[in-house]
Design a protein around this nucleic acid. Structure first.
Length: 636
RNA sequence: CGGUGAGUAGCGCAGCCUGGUAGCGUACCUGCUUUGGGAGCAGGGGGUCGGGGGUUCGAAUCCCCCCUCACCGACCA
């Protein structure tokens, strides 16, 4: 669980929203006109052009009914007995089998009624918490005209990952992979005074990224739904405040979704900016690696985890450099074995093509390159391993025998831990040969020293020095302090109190909605199916009459159905003429938290059964008490 | 983009090697029986065998090209 307890349905303090009066219409009501206490926090600086109104209180999920058809015979819930061949991840398998989604193309899914219901519940939690934090919702087109993306250079920077379309006049558009430009453009066109800020806008909409390899169902699709919010402030303190409110909202959102998550320092990647954190759902199936300290609360995405220089192995004093024959030894492993030499005494030379230039990256033999760090240092759009031809051209030697000695006209960037390696072994840039006793400064000299290393378990925590452990996670949210990256590129400015034009200071905040839902299933399932948390389930209670042709059974089921509906509970009545086992399996697969089973035998003794999905514990309850018992358990 | 594998009924699969005009399970429809853990019997509907070209008297099957999908990889020189 996160730090925060989920909010209670009622009794919470009122929350305030700011609404801007664009024209003079509406007058100048003061906050006290609402009859509610004035806002207590920094949410609102009390600017005269903001009108304060109470936000809708967080609705209780009990009244938040989103499904209209609640008889199984009339619903569209195509459950599968068998596992579709394409699915390997638990959440993907269950979303297919329980009838939440179907695939329409690689990385593209449609949401069936049951899936859509849960989807909307996640969406609504996000929406409520964003509004609670003072953000204003808008809706954007998914299509972005090329000129906006060209302003920030991202038309080119996104490369193949961006879907592109054109209209009949050959005007070009992108299917938005993210929407910084749209929001920045909107704000620069309409908000120009220091009085207009702070402002945070958000939308919940589809995004398109032509992923190299879509996988894991909706977890990494090419079309996905994202909540993206953008804050605009006039100074660094303002940004920090907007940012803190979003982080707080995120904590509440993921807690309400019943997720076990953690917040980690992250790389800001293609979005840009300075401070960046990711919200990670803990899952072994996650694609992200997290370095978390065993001693303190520090945690970071390994992409971002800093790796200072490590002390070099003691290899004596410098000896004369010497070329040696190393037939067939083109890997660190082969060299280490063939020459009985520790990998720590070897320097490997990785050749990459950064955009259109080949660069050499030096790593200690036992270390792994962190491509993200290299990419950031180079400021390149693309970083790919050089081809054998490019390596031959750049070094004069074949793949597997590259080294920094004698390299000309290319950048030689060395990891910090290469410094101080005495009498290193490294490639001679010719077939079947390496140099031994190579020494930095005498035999080769990198042009740059940078942290290029990928951290791993056992590395030191940068905060407290204890060792870190590596775990995996699913990135469900990402928050950035962008600063002026976009505002300066797009000339999004405001006039300050002195009448001077200054760049707006921005933050951006994303949540993957589909992925959050899939994560919930990753963390809430068993071998029978999904085990929904009460706040996200499409139905709180399943009514299972065992023999729909038995009048007493049927009447009782219908009576429960009415009573529970009247109490505002989402209830699914399995009115299908099917055998008991068949219905039980379906309900367990779908994961409805409570099941009331009505059978002829039980009715004769005046009892029905209530089964809790999560524990599969069953209790017999007198018919007269059952409805009240169910209502009570949904509400707790 | 590389490797591996797969495209045959809604879903899961066989048939292909060895060419002769398509089958099993499930789901679906009808009837009867059954009714507390994915029922039984009987009858039935449903397929451009991913697409195109070729070989052949004849192609799901053999050959060529293309498309799509899945899994793994795409730093460890």
């Amino acid at each position: 669980m996160g730090e925060l307890a989920p909010p209670t349905g009622g009794g919470a303090e009122p929350h305030y929203n700011k609404i801007r009066i664009l024209s003079g219409v509406g007058g100048n009501r003061s906050p006290s006109d609402t009859g509610l206490p004035a806002p207590s926090c920094s949410l609102n600086p009390g600017l005269p052009r903001w009108l304060l109104v109470p936000a809708a209180p967080a609705r209780s999920f009990i009244t938040d009914s989103l499904i209209s058809i609640m008889r199984f015979s009339e619903a569209f819930i195509p459950t599968l007995k068998e596992t579709p061949a394409e699915a390997t991840l638990a959440s993907h398998i269950l979303m297919m089998r329980a009838g939440l989604i179907r695939k329409t193309a690689s990385g593209m899914y449609l949401w069936l009624p049951l899936g859509l219901s849960m989807f909307k519940k996640v969406e609504n939690i996000i929406r409520e918490e964003m509004v609670r934090a003072g953000a204003l919702e808008i809706a954007c087109s998914i299509v972005i005209p090329d000129e906006l993306l060209r302003e920030t250079g991202r038309w080119d920077k996104f490369g193949e990952e961006m879907f592109r379309v054109h209209d009949r006049h050959r005007r070009e558009f992108a299917l938005g992979p993210t929407h910084e430009e749209i929001f920045t453009d909107l704000v620069r066109n309409h908000l120009t005074s220091w009085r207009d800020f702070p402002t945070t806008l958000f939308q919940i909409g589809r995004k398109y990224r032509d992923e190299i390899r879509p996988r894991f169902g909706v977890m990494r699709g090419r079309e996905f739904t994202m909540k993206d919010a953008y804050s605009f402030d006039t100074d660094a303190e303002g940004l920090q405040g907007s940012y803190d409110r979003m982080v707080e909202a995120y904590n509440r959102i993921f807690s309400r979704c019943g997720l076990d998550f953690t917040v980690v320092a992250a790389d800001s990647g293609a979005i840009g900016g300075d401070v960046s954190y990711e919200f990670m759902v803990k899952a072994d199936s996650g694609e992200a690696e997290i370095a978390s300290c065993t001693g303190c609360s520090y945690a970071a995405n390994v992409e971002r985890f800093p790796c200072p220089a490590l002390a070099p192995a003691d290899q004596g004093s410098p000896a004369p450099i010497e070329e040696i024959s190393t037939p067939g030894m083109s890997t660190i492993e082969a060299l280490s074995e063939g020459l009985s030499l520790a990998a720590t005494g070897i320097v490997k030379t990785l050749l990459y093509r950064a955009d259109d230039k080949v660069v050499a990256l030096l790593m200690r033999g036992d270390h792994t390159l962190n491509e993200t760090k290299a990419l950031n240092h180079l400021g390149a759009i693309e970083l790919v391993p050089a081809t054998p031809e490019e390596i031959q051209k750049a070094t004069g030697g074949p793949v597997g025998f590259s080294g920094p000695v004698g390299l000309k006209d290319i950048r030689v960037i060395a990891d910090l831990s290469v410094k101080g390696i005495v009498n290193a072994l490294l490639g001679a840039n010719k077939a079947e040969a390496h140099f031994k006793n190579a020494n930095q400064g005498r035999d080769y000299d990198p042009t740059e020293w940078v942290d290029l290393r990928l951290g791993g378990a056992g590395d030191a925590c940068p905060e407290c020095g204890e060792t870190v452990a590596i775990t995996r996670g699913i990135e469900v949210g990402h928050v950035f302090q962008l600063g002026t990256v976009y505002s300066s590129a797009m000339k999004a400015t405001f006039l300050d109190k002195e009448g001077k034009s200054r760049d707006l200071i921005m933050g951006c905040y994303g949540i993957g909605v589909d992925r959050t839902l899939a994560s919930v299933i990753e963390q809430h399932h068993d071998d029978r199916g999904i085990t929904w948390p009460m706040e996200l389930t499409p139905f709180h209670v399943a009514i299972v009459p065992l023999n729909v042709k038995d009048e007493a059974v049927n009447d009782t089921a219908e009576r429960f159905y009415r009573e529970l509906q009247e109490a505002g509970i989402d209830v699914l009545l399995d009115d299908r003429d099917q055998r008991a086992g068949f219905k039980f399996k379906d309900m367990e697969l779908i994961g409805i938290p409570l099941r009331v089973t009505i059978g002829p035998k039980g009715l004769k003794s005046g009892e029905v059964e209530i089964t809790e999905r999560r524990t599969m514990e069953t209790e017999n309850v007198p018919v007269a008490e059952a409805a009240a018992r169910l209502i009570n358990r949904v509400q707790q």
